[in-house]
C-alpha cells in the first residue's frame, strides 16, 4: 500500500512535468532539454521562497511564471538567434544550473523540513479528518494534476491553442494564416517549461528539500511518460492525450519502483536509478517504434 501511494505521488508530480514535455515533444516536435533545469529551478525558487516566509500556494504560481520565462529564453535563442532546437535547450539548461544555485543561495541542498507547505499547513490540519490523513498528499496531488490537465485541454481548444497545434503539424500553414510561427513556438515552450517548474515546485514541497541534481534526466522521464501513455492508450481514441500522459507517468513510476525493489536481489541500489531510467526509456523507445520519425528528423 505504501508503495502504491508512493508511486501515485511521484507519478502525479512527474505527470505535470510530462504535460509540458507533451507540448514540446508531441505538439511542437521540439526536443526541449531545458526542462532538465526548469524542474530544479521550480524547486530552488520554492525552497528559497518558503524559507523567506512566502505562502506555499503562491510559490506554485511563482514557479510556473519563472519556468515560463526560461522557456521563452529557449524559444528566443532558437527563433531569433537561429540556434538549433536541441542546442538552445542545452544552452539554457547549462546556464540555469548556475542560476539555480544562486537562487538557492549558493547551496546545492536546501532543506525546508518543518516549514509550512501545500501538503502540511494549519489550514489542512484543521480540516482533514484523521482517517484521510495518510492520503492527504496523494489527494492534493491528484487535484493539482487534474486542474493542470483540464486547463491545458481548454487551452488547446482556444484559437491560440489551435495555432500551437498547427505549428507542430504544418508550419507553412501558420505562415499562410499571417501568423509568426516563431512566436507560437516561444509560447509553447513557455507553457511547457512553466509546467516543468511547477512540477519542481511541488516536488520540493513534497520531499521537503531542494537538491541541485534533482533535474538530471527530467526530459528522459518526461518523454518516457508521454510515449508510454500515448502508446498504451492509443487504441482508445476517446481518451485525450493529456489523460494518457498522466496514466503513462504512473505506469512509468510503477515500473521504476518495481525495478528498484526487485532489483535489490540482483545487487541494484538506489544510486542505479538513472541507469534504470535510461534502460527503461530505451526499451520503451524500441518497443513503441516512436523513434523512427524523430531519428529521421533530428539525427
Amino acid at each position: 500500500m505504501t508503495q502504491l501511494i508512493g508511486i501515485l505521488e511521484e507519478g502525479f508530480i512527474y505527470a505535470i512535468m510530462a504535460l509540458g514535455v507533451y507540448i514540446t515533444y508531441k505538439i511542437l516536435d521540439f526536443p526541449d532539454l531545458s526542462v532538465d533545469s526548469t524542474f530544479p529551478m521550480g524547486a530552488a525558487i520554492t525552497a528559497s521562497a518558503i524559507l523567506a516566509g512566502m505562502n506555499p500556494v503562491l510559490t506554485l504560481f511563482l514557479s510556473f511564471a519563472a519556468g515560463a520565462l526560461a522557456g521563452c529564453v529557449t524559444g528566443l535563442i532558437h527563433v531569433k538567434l537561429k540556434v538549433r532546437d536541441l542546442l538552445s535547450g542545452i544552452i539554457v539548461m547549462t546556464a540555469l544550473y548556475s542560476i539555480n544555485l544562486r537562487i538557492a543561495g549558493g547551496r546545492a541542498n536546501v532543506p525546508i523540513f518543518s516549514q509550512q507547505t501545500i501538503f502540511e499547513n494549519g489550514f489542512l490540519d484543521a480540516r482533514i479528518p484523521s482517517a484521510l490523513a495518510p492520503y492527504t498528499i496523494v489527494i492534493i496531488l491528484f487535484l493539482i494534476t487534474l486542474v493542470c490537465k483540464v486547463l491545458l485541454d481548454l487551452y488547446l481548444k482556444t484559437r491560440s491553442g489551435y495555432l500551437l497545434r498547427a505549428v507542430g503539424d504544418n508550419e507553412v500553414l501558420v505562415t499562410s494564416l499571417a501568423k509568426d510561427k516563431g512566436l507560437v513556438k516561444i509560447v509553447g515552450l513557455a507553457i511547457a517549461n512553466g509546467f516543468a517548474a511547477l512540477a519542481g515546485c511541488i516536488y520540493c514541497q513534497q520531499k521537503g528539500f531542494f537538491e541541485i541534481s534533482v533535474g538530471t534526466g527530467t526530459m528522459v522521464i518526461g518523454l518516457a511518460n508521454v510515449i508510454i501513455g500515448i502508446q498504451l492508450l492509443k487504441r482508445f481514441s476517446f481518451i485525450r492525450s493529456t489523460t494518457a500522459v498522466i496514466v503513462g507517468s504512473i505506469v512509468y513510476k510503477a515500473c521504476v519502483s518495481l525495478a528498484i525493489t526487485h532489483g535489490m536481489t540482483f545487487g541494484l541500489e538506489a544510486n542505479d536509478l538513472k541507469l534504470i531510467t535510461a534502460v527503461l526509456f530505451l526499451l520503451i523507445l524500441v518497443i513503441s517504434r516512436d523513434r523512427r520519425k524523430k531519428v529521421k528528423a533530428h539525427a
Binding site: T158, R159, Y162, L163, R165, D169, L173, S176, L177, K179
Partner: peptide
C-alpha cells in the same frame, strides 16, 4: 494540418487576420 479535424482547419482559416487569442477555437 493533417492532425487536426476538417472543422478545426476551417476554423483556423476563418480566423486569419484576426487575433488568435483565448476565445474558443
Amino acid at each position: 494540418c493533417p492532425n487536426m479535424t476538417i472543422l478545426e482547419n476551417m476554423s483556423m482559416a476563418d480566423h486569419k487576420g484576426k487575433p488568435f487569442n483565448l476565445l474558443p477555437g
